[in-house]
Amino acid sequence: MTFVDGRDPGLPGRLLLAERDLFIPLLRERGDEEFALPVDACPRWTVRDVLAHCGAALTRVVESRFENGVFTPEGNDRDIAERADWPASRVVDELERGMTEAGDVIAGAGGALDGVAFGEWVHAGDVRAAFGAPGAYGGAGLPHALALLEWITRTRDHVPVHADLDDFDEPLRLGAVPGTRPPARFIGDATALVRLYTGRAVAAERYELAGAEESELNLYGG
């Protein structure tokens, strides 16, 4: 796995396609009752709500619909409510279409929408966790997700972190806070790192972190 200093416009699309090929078949196999399961990482939302949110977000990207309030908590709730009467199969259809078509739009947006692709991948992990299915915050898309996480944290001047991952040969160099602050040090597995950066629960014995607080890593502000 090689990480680059510049933006890779095709990276978000590759992440979405890799996740689509694994995630959509998983959803097609599930019964309607499983779409009503709660999602621990998203209080008040069921699996169906998360999928409706994900599909709606990608549809907005594909159709370039970014009116006021989009991607806010209130806007997300409106998108979910608009799909309340849809059968689960239609919710999955929309998500599949979005994961297939959004990559080119994201590539051409100059980086402004890269975080959407990463968030979609994270929410797929949330759903896997709700199902008790393997591969949450991992799987074939993990190398793409890590490279995208590295890029996103740099562009946001996030806290600097040198991450030595148990399951990858090369370290990640995340963040770029201006000034003289030395990088924090993370040692652990890649999915634990993802969980920390996205505010998901992670067992303390799965990682070591020195030079920063866990809350400083959370991209979504805790």
Rank of each mutant, 00 (worst) to 15 (best):
A204W: 02
D21L: 15
D32E: 14
Y207V: 04
G138C: 00
L51I: 02
E216Y: 10
D93V: 04
R173N: 10
A57T: 10
D8R: 14
R200Q: 04
A36Y: 03
G6C: 10
A117I: 02
G222E: 09
L172S: 03
G108C: 08
L219H: 06
G175N: 04
L193F: 13
L217C: 07
A84K: 13
H162F: 11
Y137N: 05
D77E: 13
C42W: 06
T59W: 02
L58V: 01
E213D: 15
G13S: 11
A107T: 08
A129F: 03
A56C: 10
D40Q: 15
V127S: 04
W45H: 03
P12L: 10
G119H: 01
V92M: 08
N68M: 09
V161W: 08
C42R: 12
D157M: 13
T72A: 12
V202R: 00
D189G: 12
L196V: 07
V159S: 07
A130I: 04
Y220H: 10
E214Y: 03
D79F: 03
D164K: 14
P171E: 10
D77T: 05
A84D: 11
T59C: 05
E96S: 14
E67T: 15
G10Q: 08
A212M: 14
G55S: 04
D5H: 14
R90Q: 12
G13Y: 03
P143R: 08
D157L: 14
D157K: 12
T59G: 07
M1H: 15
R206E: 09
A41W: 01
G103D: 04
P178I: 11
F23S: 00
F168I: 02
A57C: 06
G138T: 02
T180K: 11
E74P: 00
E67W: 10
E214G: 05
T46E: 12
V194K: 00
G6E: 11
R173G: 10
D126C: 09
V116Y: 01
T72H: 08
G6L: 10
R7Y: 09
E170N: 10
L149D: 03
T72W: 13
T100M: 11
L165A: 07
P160W: 11
G10C: 09
E74M: 06
I152R: 12
N218Q: 10
A84M: 09
V116M: 09
P43Y: 04
A124N: 01
H162K: 15
A203P: 05
V194N: 01
D32Q: 08
V39Y: 06
A109K: 04
F23L: 05
H144Y: 13
R90T: 10
A81R: 13
E74K: 11
P73S: 14
R200V: 03
